[in-house]
Structure formats: structure tokens, C-alpha cells
Simulated scan of single mutants.
Amino acid sequence: MTASDREQLRERGWSERRATPRRVGLRRASAECGGAATAARADARLFVIETRLPNEQEHRRRVEARTADFPGHRMPTWDEVQSDGWIPGDEERDGPRILIDTTDAEVAAAQALAGIRAHHQHTL
């Protein structure tokens, strides 16, 4: 990721850590909390980014190594992550999404930006 990419993320309120969002957060924010309806009411674009980490051992290592971003926040255990009811994205059901492999965080952040740029250009 270039310095320009990092600056664009910061301008949009993202930190580099948030540039690789957790799979649960964004999908739930969109599908379960009415993200599309909220975006429509605000006359805003909604970018759904679904992240995947194909290596289960690495995924578990990352989950178990997480620390809370703010005091009092409890991070889920590996067992909780595994039983959270995750439903993979489906473009027919949920609309378009940007699918990112988070094996390499730098590559994932760059892919997320590229996907947003491509979607933005396509919808102009």
C-alpha cells in the first residue's frame, strides 16, 4: 500500500488496522442492520467488503491474539467466532460485495481500495 493509499484511508476515517475489517462486523452491519436501506436514505453508496482468511490455523492465531481497541471491550474466543452464525455473502441475496483474502494485510488493504475505486468508477 502506498503512502497515498494510507492517506486516502485516513481521510475516510479508516486506520490501517481497520483497513482489514473483521468478517463479522461488516456483513452484519450491512445484512442484519439495514445498511443498504440506511445508505439509500442518506443518498450514499454502500460498499460491502467481505474478508476471508482461508488458513484456519492462521485465522485462529489472529483471533486469539486480538486485543480490545477500547477499555471494557471483550474480544470473542475462537469457539465464539466459530459458533457466531456466520452466513457467507451471496450477491443475489445481499447485493454486490468486494471479496478480500486477508492472508497478507498490506495486499488486502490495497485490494479493498482498488475494489472501492473500481465500484466508484462503475457507478458514476
Rank of each mutant, 00 (worst) to 15 (best):
1 M>S: 14
3 A>P: 03
4 S>C: 03
4 S>Y: 10
5 D>C: 06
6 R>L: 11
6 R>K: 15
7 E>S: 12
7 E>D: 14
7 E>V: 08
8 Q>N: 15
10 R>N: 12
12 R>T: 08
12 R>D: 10
13 G>C: 12
14 W>S: 09
14 W>Q: 13
15 S>V: 09
15 S>W: 08
15 S>G: 15
16 E>K: 05
16 E>H: 10
16 E>A: 07
17 R>Q: 15
17 R>Y: 15
18 R>D: 15
19 A>F: 06
20 T>L: 07
20 T>C: 14
21 P>H: 04
21 P>L: 04
22 R>S: 13
23 R>E: 13
23 R>T: 14
23 R>K: 11
25 G>S: 11
25 G>K: 06
25 G>Y: 14
26 L>A: 15
28 R>W: 03
29 A>I: 00
30 S>I: 00
30 S>G: 02
32 E>I: 01
32 E>N: 10
32 E>G: 13
35 G>M: 02
35 G>C: 03
35 G>E: 10
35 G>A: 05
36 A>K: 06
36 A>Y: 03
37 A>V: 08
37 A>N: 10
37 A>M: 08
40 A>M: 05
40 A>T: 09
40 A>N: 05
42 A>H: 07
43 D>L: 04
43 D>A: 12
45 R>A: 11
46 L>A: 02
46 L>V: 03
47 F>I: 04
48 V>R: 09
49 I>H: 06
50 E>G: 12
51 T>L: 03
51 T>A: 06
51 T>E: 06
52 R>S: 10
53 L>M: 14
53 L>T: 07
53 L>R: 11
55 N>C: 04
56 E>N: 03
56 E>G: 01
59 H>R: 14
61 R>V: 02
62 R>N: 03
62 R>T: 06
63 V>A: 11
64 E>H: 00
66 R>N: 06
68 A>S: 15
69 D>W: 10
72 G>R: 08
73 H>K: 13
73 H>I: 05
74 R>L: 13
74 R>C: 04
74 R>V: 15
74 R>I: 14
76 P>E: 05
76 P>K: 06
77 T>Q: 07
78 W>L: 11
79 D>M: 05
80 E>W: 08
80 E>M: 14
80 E>L: 09
81 V>A: 07
82 Q>G: 14
82 Q>I: 06
83 S>K: 12
86 W>C: 04
87 I>S: 13
88 P>Y: 05
88 P>S: 07
88 P>W: 04
89 G>I: 05
89 G>N: 04
90 D>M: 03
92 E>N: 13
92 E>V: 10
92 E>K: 09
93 R>D: 08
93 R>G: 09
94 D>H: 05
94 D>M: 05
95 G>F: 05
95 G>H: 05
97 R>E: 03
99 L>V: 14
100 I>P: 04
100 I>S: 01
101 D>H: 04
102 T>E: 06
102 T>N: 04
103 T>S: 12
103 T>G: 08
103 T>N: 00
104 D>M: 00
107 V>C: 00
108 A>M: 02
109 A>C: 02
109 A>D: 00
110 A>N: 03
110 A>Y: 00
111 Q>W: 02
113 L>F: 02
114 A>Q: 13
114 A>R: 13
115 G>I: 07
116 I>H: 04
117 R>D: 15
118 A>M: 09
120 H>A: 11
121 Q>T: 11
121 Q>Y: 09
123 T>P: 00
123 T>Y: 02
123 T>D: 13
123 T>F: 01
123 T>W: 07
124 L>D: 12
124 L>Y: 07
